[in-house]
């Protein structure tokens, strides 16, 4: 048998291989031509499923896909380290134009409080989308019926009150520490139980692990409506429309804290890629679905992009660094 002659099986395999290679090459070239943007976007959430950041990502996923702005949006949860786990992941994906990350107050705080080597300089911040607020809540059967009761308990024995909230440096954590200082105690005495998502914070409260929970309003909304959780105060400067919770200012504390949410992209993008992704954020906030989400979750529209956003980010970083330093928590 001629050793160069193909057996029938080999010939068949060769034909199939040629066809598959052709198809694969066509797909590879096509996918490369799309430049990785427009068809599929991966959204990294630097927190566990079911929290504030997660909600932003999943609402964006819905709005983007429904309006055909992208074909597929995949949400990936990467909780931990005050958001620095997700941040480090995105910082390592240099040049990926199909990657977005949800970011906000909590990431800035998380970076400063952990002394993370990876900072916002290592990713590409794109835009601010909306503002959210933090709620201080207790179980319905708790003896604490108002923020004044909590202030009294805190002033008497700060360590005895177990407070559950999001990761270190999040708006939850900063608000708890600021409020404790506001009632005249040492913020170093805060007994704070760290969770990586709002859902876990709620469970911690309901399972009697924590006495007080600090988290975004939406984490508690269903339980507040059902009468199982009582909100003591909200961190907004003015009362929220349609939400019957006193602000911290009304409770007598000189304190408010907005928890803004935004989007960032991977580092190392060229101007065209960056503009395309920033445009995607702009298109997102204009969709009917997104406006509906903002209404439903009680957020405030706060879109900001470009140079204004860069300025805001620098200011916000200074402000939060000052707060954390003032609390004695700067790494």
């Amino acid at each position: 048998m001629n050793r160069f002659a193909l057996s029938r099986r080999e010939a068949l395999a060769g034909v199939i291989a040629a066809a598959a290679l052709g198809g694969g090459a066509w797909e590879a070239a096509g996918s490369a031509a799309r430049g990785g943007v427009g068809s599929r976007v991966e959204v990294v959430v630097p927190a566990a499923a079911g929290g504030g950041f997660d909600t932003v990502a999943r609402q964006a996923q819905h709005a983007l896909q429904t309006n055909g702005l992208t074909r597929t949006v995949e949400v990936v949860n990467m909780p931990g380290g005050g958001g620095t786990v997700g941040l480090s992941h995105v910082a390592g994906q240099t040049g990926r134009a199909d990657l977005l990350m949800v970011m906000g107050t909590s990431i800035l705080g998380g970076v400063r409080i952990t002394g993370s080597a990876v900072t916002l300089d290592d990713i590409t911040p794109l835009a601010r989308l909306a503002e959210d607020y933090v709620v201080v809540a207790v179980r319905a059967d708790s003896p604490l019926t108002s923020f004044a009761d909590l202030a009294e308990r805190w002033a008497a024995d700060p360590r005895a009150v177990a407070v559950a909230g999001g990761a270190v440096g999040t708006a939850d954590h900063l608000l708890a520490a600021l409020a404790l200082r506001g009632v005249g105690a040492d913020p170093a005495d805060l007994t704070y139980i760290v969770y990586s998502g709002d859902g876990e914070v709620l469970t911690s409260l309901l399972s009697h692990t924590a006495d007080v929970a600090v988290s975004s309003y939406n984490g508690f909304a269903a339980q507040i409506d059902a009468g199982e959780v009582r909100a003591l105060a909200v961190s907004a400067a003015r009362p929220l429309p349609g939400v019957d919770i006193p602000t911290l200012r009304e409770a007598g504390l000189d304190l408010d804290l907005a928890n803004w949410r935004g989007l960032a992209a991977a580092p190392g993008l060229d101007a065209g890629q960056r503009d395309r992704l920033a445009g995607l954020a702009q298109d997102l906030v204009a969709t009917e679905e997104w406006r509906e989400s903002v209404r439903r979750f009680g957020w405030e529209d706060a879109f900001l992009a470009g140079a204004d956003f860069a300025d805001f980010l620098a200011e916000e970083d200074d402000r939060l660094t000052g707060i954390i330093d003032g609390l004695g928590l700067l790494a």
């Binding site: 931990g80 380290g81 005050g82 620095t84 952990t114 002394g115 993370s116 270190v168 760290v194 990586s196």
Partner: peptide
């Protein structure tokens, strides 16, 4: 990796 709770 990065510690979940403290970011160390």
């Amino acid at each position: 990796g990065i510690d979940d709770q403290t970011g160390a």
